[in-house]
Computed example of a mutant assay.
Amino acid sequence: MHAHAHTSPPLHLQPSQDREIQFDIPIRQLELRKGERTLDMLDTVEDTKGNNGERGDLIITNLRLIWWSHRSRRTNLSVGYNAIISINIRQATSRLRGPTQALYVLTKYNGSRFEFIFTNLVRNSPRLFTTIQAVFRAYDTTRLYRDLKLRGAIIQDNELKLLPREQIYSKLQGVWNLSSDQGNLGTFIATNIRLVWYANLAQNFNVSMPYIQIRSILVRDSKFGPALVIDTTARSGGYILGFRVDPMEKLEELFKEVSSLWTVYSSNPIFGMDYVLEGQPQTLKDVTVKREQDDVEVVDQDLESGRDVFAAYYADSSKSTDRQPVYSEELGLAVEELREDLTIDALWNVLS
């Protein structure tokens, strides 16, 4: 039984900052991961939806938006671009600026919709709008660097359409994809960013596997004999893909090569965003204060505090009709029936 496993830096165990939304996390968890870069930093931005009236820093990276309050950096947000549904500019009411144009960011995460409203407190500055919209477009058009793709338009005239900064390290003919009962014969390509296989007779039958989405690389027995087995992360679909290469020496050589490329990528991931602003933005390290300042403000929090933060950004846009009115003893009047996970107190705390 062949079972050679490759152990690389556990990329799949690192937080996927571009796919998550986090509220009020420890400041150390806001540190940039490998491959993440600060693209811009705006130091006078209000989180108008959840912290109206508070100034804060907005850090724009190639994976997410990070906002924290000047008053207490324990009050913060991390919004991954993959969770964003839409970005719009609309009128909002800021406690610091009054009625003004603001950036509305609608997101979806873990089945719930959240809305974030950011107001630039620097008057006559469109930088908040232009930068975030441009960076999100750049993220959206570079998904092949980060997402596993099946049957993509990635092959043209029997050649892989290379991504910017992508280099081919090997191209191997006569590789069987073992995903079907009979297997399919095709070509296997290893680059510095991903592994690609496509069928010889149907080039649109293909798979593109970024190293960022690979959990493990193995050589083990299959019903077709020894095979290169690639296990992908749950967030990419949890695929287990097998490839047969003859003779065994060539299979071992391919295994060593892709394992090495995966290790190199793990030490310095390439996420595909080369968006550059005029001037050099500050890094997160530059705008991080010493840890003792985190303890300046002591806030008494009860068990419902986490739910209040959650409720502050909840966008109940999925309902198509109003709920039935019910009598609220707390308010002494009829109100629209609340969702099971909300209370009058929680909503009052959001508005107060």
Rank of each mutant, 00 (worst) to 15 (best):
A134V: 01
S180P: 01
A334P: 11
S328Y: 14
S170H: 08
F224N: 05
T119D: 06
L30S: 06
K171S: 03
F310Q: 05
R339P: 13
I89A: 02
F271K: 01
N192Y: 00
L172P: 02
Y145E: 00
A311K: 07
E278C: 07
R97I: 07
K171A: 03
D18S: 13
Q182W: 15
S320D: 07
F271D: 03
T107E: 10
Y104E: 06
T48Y: 10
G242M: 03
L63S: 03
P210W: 02
G237T: 07
Y313M: 05
R291G: 06
T233C: 10
V335M: 03
S208T: 05
K223A: 12
E159D: 11
S16A: 12
F136K: 02
L103S: 04
E297R: 12
G56D: 02
L351P: 05
T107R: 05
A234G: 15
A102C: 05
Q167N: 09
G174K: 07
L148V: 13
E36V: 10
N200Q: 09
F271P: 00
F118G: 04
V264L: 04
T44L: 13
G98Q: 05
L178E: 04
F136S: 00
D231L: 08
S8Y: 15
E159Y: 11
M209T: 04
E292W: 10
S352H: 13
Q29H: 13
V350N: 01
A346V: 15
A102Y: 07
A199L: 15
D157I: 14
P164T: 08
F116K: 01
F188V: 01
A138F: 04
Q213K: 15
G225V: 06
H2F: 12
T131Y: 09
L13G: 10
Q293T: 15
S222I: 07
H4M: 15
A202V: 15
G238H: 06
N62H: 09
D246S: 11
I27S: 10
L351V: 11
Q101T: 10
R194K: 08
